[in-house]
């Protein structure tokens, strides 16, 4: 289980190979990569700046990983989230889950992202051709979270 909050980019291929080769008991490795889109709410996006709450961010991400490990039999998990100013096509977030078989890894990866979207203290501000604006939270993200509690 580990988490990284960083400004630097990451190499998905390298990370996947490192995780896979470090865990010979894992038969499944599921990962998610989130990237900056070039459009949002009908406007083109020039840059996206991610603010966070240092200290709470790490606490929240670790708690999400712990919950995933409590729900499913997982071998390892990794969450990387970038902060600072990014541009379209930049990678924002990486989640990887290893388990013996694919079912747990698929479910836990989605669970971690749903919790991260609604519980981890990150905030996005977009610069568009017409100015800057804070991105609003989506109710669909809360709905995605709620299905894990049914």
């Amino acid at each position: 289980m580990s988490i990284q909050v960083q400004t630097e980019d990451f190499d998905v291929g390298l990370l996947l190979n490192q995780l896979r080769l470090a865990n010979p008991s894992a038969g499944a490795l599921v990962s998610f990569v989130g990237q900056v889109r070039d459009v949002n709410d009908g406007d083109s996006v020039n840059t996206l700046t991610l603010e966070h709450y240092p200290g709470m961010t790490e606490t929240a991400l670790a708690a999400i990983e712990t919950q995933a490990h409590a729900r499913w039999k997982l071998i390892d998990t990794l969450i990387i989230h970038r902060v600072g100013t990014l541009k379209p096509l930049d990678q924002i977030v990486f989640v990887a889950v290893l388990s013996a078989h694919r079912g747990e890894a698929f479910k836990a990866c989605e669970f971690i992202m749903d919790y991260l979207k609604t519980q981890a203290p990150f905030w996005k501000k977009e610069i568009t051709p017409t100015g800057e604006r804070w991105v609003d939270a989506k109710s669909s993200d809360d709905e995605s979270l709620n299905r894990w509690n049914k």
């Binding site: 203290p121 905030w123 804070w134």
Partner: peptide, 10 residues
């Protein structure tokens, strides 16, 4: 204590 808007990471 911290005050902030609903989060929008990921």
């Amino acid at each position: 204590v911290a005050f902030f808007p609903p989060v929008t990471g990921g």
